[in-house]
Design a binder for these strands. Structure first.
Length: 583
DNA sequence: ACTCCGCCGGCGAATCTTCG
DNA sequence: CGAAGATTCGCCGGCGGAGT
């Protein structure tokens, strides 16, 4: 049915709204398809509301009616009428005359609530662009995000939007690739959303307790305003391109326009919608990604403990000018993509680090430890919280003024970071072990699996080393998708990077064998003394490891690579030692 | 030398949620 | 209703420091 309507769309006259904007034919046609799909979405919203309101009205028994105030009773009588009125409106999610008042009246249970508007908290407004981005993210053909708000579960619009997005792809100018390609589609959806005047949509409510799985189900009585003004109202990508055409059809102008559109440092962005291979495009942003919000840390709003204070402090003091802050954010983003493989030990296979090892050997050992999932540690599938949690851990321990650092100093260094902090973070693998594994910290003792204490058992690498690391990583990330692969290999090792290739987060050069020193740093002449040596030894023995695997016919890139046995760990350890002797 | 103590972090139960 | 995902909580062992 939807396909049939899309076919007709090719022949339908384009609505005046899209003509007036003066877009070229391809944009108009694509917007037309988006228009149809979003109309179906609006139908879903109507059904959801109609069903919800009717059931709410039905649930009011005569006894309850008796106990109501006269004004409430009067309002109750009117609700059904208001609902029917709203269902007949042309643009039911707009701020056109009376529409908002009608829907509010139908939805609110008590007459006094109507003045408050639709049930939606004040602070959750968003923009039409974010709305369009969310829709696109969930309906794109490759690696769509998990379905959630604002899509209505079991609504017809999901399939229609998927089909529409696929058709819209056909209209994208061939010169656009990757991110630009997606941006163009989002712009088309945005044009249609503006055409249909979608200003508020039903959303999924937050969990009342704050605990448990986050709700993804859209309900009729919780709404979100999507008509918030963009903080930096940049023109859409399409506008930019057309503007460049108007100036002169030179390729250069187009590119400049495109770069300007992409480089707007104030544009909002979110980690979930981008791939690691695209991260380089976002490193010049001066706004934090959506995931860097307090709500992603799963701490109660009213909490005033030092954990909560630390999160608020880092969010308030995040400084884009500080390389170490950006390094922390990069680590958080990469970890969010590594999740749930953030663990290093399980009950069956406890990790034991021999106490006879020197600190350098321990560091290498940890860097080489495989990234595994842990079935008994559940809350690690959703990458979202990792962005803020890792970033906050790193920044708060690098900044002596942070509440966590002050608490740590106040209680005496022997007392560590405190139970409240440790409990929350160790369950997600947000520990010093992973800071060492990502190459930003060093082990000082062999006590790394349990009871590892800051400044006693582990320590950040020296600031100059971290600055160089940051410089190297950002350069690699900016160097296209292959650079991104190299950067991620540096952070989490080649095996994990290959897993991320399987997940579609990264791309690997085709035809080039893995572990060919992708950074281009000559093995005999390490660029970063004290840092690269570990990584290089890792590569060297991973190369041996994967070669030996290949010799047995295993696929070294296998996603579900079995957990290496204790024996293999020991052999890895042996190789590392050998390398150390060798160097 | 021995015991006590406190921290980290792994495990599993309890509790909350969504969804078929 | 039951499966499954996410969080919190109590329990406990390993470790190493402090005190006797």
């Amino acid at each position: 049915m939807a396909h049939f309507r899309f076919m007709l769309a090719k022949y339908y006259p384009v609505p005046q709204v899209y003509m007036q904007a003066g877009y070229p034919n391809s944009v108009q046609r694509a917007a037309m398809i988006a228009h149809i799909a979003l109309s179906v979405y609006i139908e879903d919203v109507k059904q959801l509301v109609a069903f919800g309101v009717r059931r709410a009205i039905k649930s009011v028994t005569p006894a309850i009616l008796e106990s109501m105030s006269p004004s409430d009773r009067q309002h109750h009588e009117l609700r059904l009428t208001r609902l029917d009125q709203w269902l007949k409106v042309d643009n039911p999610l707009s701020h056109e005359k009376g529409v908002y008042a009608t829907i509010t009246s139908a939805i609110c249970e008590h007459s006094l609530d109507i003045a408050q508007g639709l049930p939606a908290p004040d602070d959750n407004d968003t923009t039409q662009r974010e709305f369009a981005t969310a829709l696109y993210g969930m309906t794109k053909p490759h690696h769509p995000h998990t379905l959630g708000a604002p899509l209505i579960s079991r609504g017809g619009s999901i399939a229609v939007l998927q089909a529409a997005v696929e058709l819209i792809h056909a209209y994208v100018p061939p010169a656009l690739e990757g991110l630009q390609h997606e941006q163009w589609c989002i712009d088309v959806l945005l044009i249609a959303a503006r055409g249909l005047q979608i200003c508020y949509v039903p959303w999924s409510p937050p969990n009342p307790q704050g605990a448990g799985r986050r709700s993804s189900k859209v309900v009729w009585n919780y709404w979100k305003n999507v008509s918030k003004a963009d903080r930096s109202p940049r023109p859409t990508l399409i506008d930019q391109i057309e503007h460049a055409f108007a100036l002169g059809p030179s390729q250069r102008g187009k590119e400049a326009a495109f770069n300007a559109a992409m480089a707007s440092s104030q544009s909002p962005w979110d980690v979930a919608s981008i791939r690691l291979s695209e991260l380089g495009h976002y490193l010049n942003r001066q706004v934090l990604p959506t995931e860097m919000k307090f709500s992603y840390a799963n701490i109660a709003q009213q909490d005033t403990g030092y954990c909560s204070q630390t999160y608020r402090w880092v969010l308030a003091h995040f400084d884009f000018g500080k390389p170490l802050h950006q390094l922390a954010l990069i680590c958080g983003i990469v970890m969010s993509k590594v999740a749930p493989n953030v663990f290093y030990t399980t009950q069956d296979d406890p990790l034991h680090i021999p106490p006879t090892m020197t600190p350098d050997e321990v560091t290498s050992f940890i860097v080489d430890a495989p990234w595994i999932t842990n079935t008994t540690r559940k809350g690690a599938k959703d990458g979202g919280p990792f962005v803020i949690m890792f970033t906050v851990l790193i920044i708060s321990l690098l900044e002596p003024a942070s509440p966590l650092y002050r608490q740590y100093v106040a209680t005496g260094k022997r007392h560590g970071l405190g139970g409240a902090w440790t409990k929350k973070h160790s369950a997600k693998g947000i520990t010093s072990f992973n800071l060492i594994r990502m190459g930003i910290a060093n082990a000082l003792t062999s006590k790394q699996v349990k009871g590892s204490l800051f400044h006693i058992d582990w320590e950040f690498k020296p600031t100059p080393v971290l600055h160089e690391y940051h410089q190297q990583l950002t350069e690699l990330f900016r160097n296209g998708e292959h650079g991104a692969y190299d950067a991620v290999s540096l952070l989490v090792g080649c095996e994990m990077a290959n897993t991320l290739v399987k997940r579609g987060e990264l791309k690997r050069r085709s035809g080039v064998p893995i572990l060919t020193n992708p950074t281009g740093i000559p093995l005999s002449n390490p660029l970063l003394p004290g840092l690269s040596s570990n990584r290089i030894s890792q590569r060297k023995h991973q190369l041996k490891r994967s070669m030996s695997l290949a010799a047995y016919g295993d696929d070294p890139f296998a996603l579900d690579e079995p957990r290496p046995s204790q024996r293999r760990r020991a052999s890895a350890l042996h190789t590392t030692r050998h390398d150390m002797d060798f160097m």
